[in-house]
Amino acid sequence: MDLRTTFPRSMKTRLAGYVHLARMIDKCRAVLAGTEGEYIYPCPMDERLLDYAGITAEQFTAAVKANQTDDGVVEWFRRTATPHGEAEREAWNGKLLERGPSSPESAAKFKTYRDAVDPSRTDITAWSDLQDLEEGRPVPRRR
């Protein structure tokens, strides 16, 4: 995957029941290929998923390197990750998708990024929505 010319999948894309996993795979593949551009792997959102799954970035990277398909990575992830019930996982997914800036410094960065893309979108308060907006995906207006 060449993230210098295309975007990774949305954080909202679910794979193996987890949000962000597909995006993390895309970014990891790009880092392995040297085509990550301005994307960062592992970033703080990646670390949140890895911590929740009980997996290190090194383990995940090795699994992506060893498995050329999403199915192979998903199979490895299911065998390796700390098991979570569906209700717990869905609550965690929702929390990650709703996550916004967590400090005044982070809020200032968020506002700068959002305003660079569309300053009228003050309804956007979550990183997942800001990523989608920045990458050209539709983000419904919130009231």
Rank of each mutant, 00 (worst) to 15 (best):
S102H: 09
A126G: 01
V73F: 05
A116I: 01
S106R: 02
V74M: 05
A116N: 15
L130K: 09
D132Q: 12
G85R: 10
K109P: 00
D118T: 10
E90V: 04
T122D: 10
T61V: 09
T69I: 08
K65T: 08
R137M: 00
P104Y: 00
R121S: 09
F60W: 10
D123C: 08
T69K: 06
L96Q: 15
A116G: 15
G85F: 02
A116C: 05
E105M: 12
T80Q: 12
N93Q: 03
A66R: 12
T56G: 11
P140G: 01
A116T: 07
A108R: 14
Y113R: 12
E86R: 08
L96M: 15
G94P: 05
R99Y: 02
D51R: 14
D129R: 13
S120D: 14
R141I: 01
G72N: 08
R137P: 06
T80E: 07
P83R: 11
L130I: 05
P138C: 13
E105W: 03
V73C: 03
G72Q: 12
S120Q: 08
A81W: 02
F77L: 07
A87K: 09
I124E: 04
D71H: 09
L96F: 11
G72C: 06
V74T: 08
E134Y: 00
T61W: 03
K95I: 00
A116Q: 12
P119Y: 05
E98M: 12
V117E: 02
P83T: 02
A81E: 03
P138M: 04
A62V: 02
A53G: 02
E98A: 15
Q131E: 14
P104N: 05
L133K: 08
R137C: 04
P138A: 10
P104F: 03
V117I: 11
G100R: 03
P104L: 00
Y52G: 00
A63M: 04
A63L: 08
S128I: 09
T112D: 07
T112M: 13
E105R: 14
K111A: 10
G94Q: 15
P119W: 00
F110W: 00
R78M: 11
S103T: 15
D129Q: 09
D118L: 07
T125G: 02
S106M: 10
V117S: 06
A108C: 03
A53N: 03
S128N: 04
E105I: 11
Q68C: 04
D115K: 03
N67C: 05
G85W: 13
K95R: 15
F60E: 05
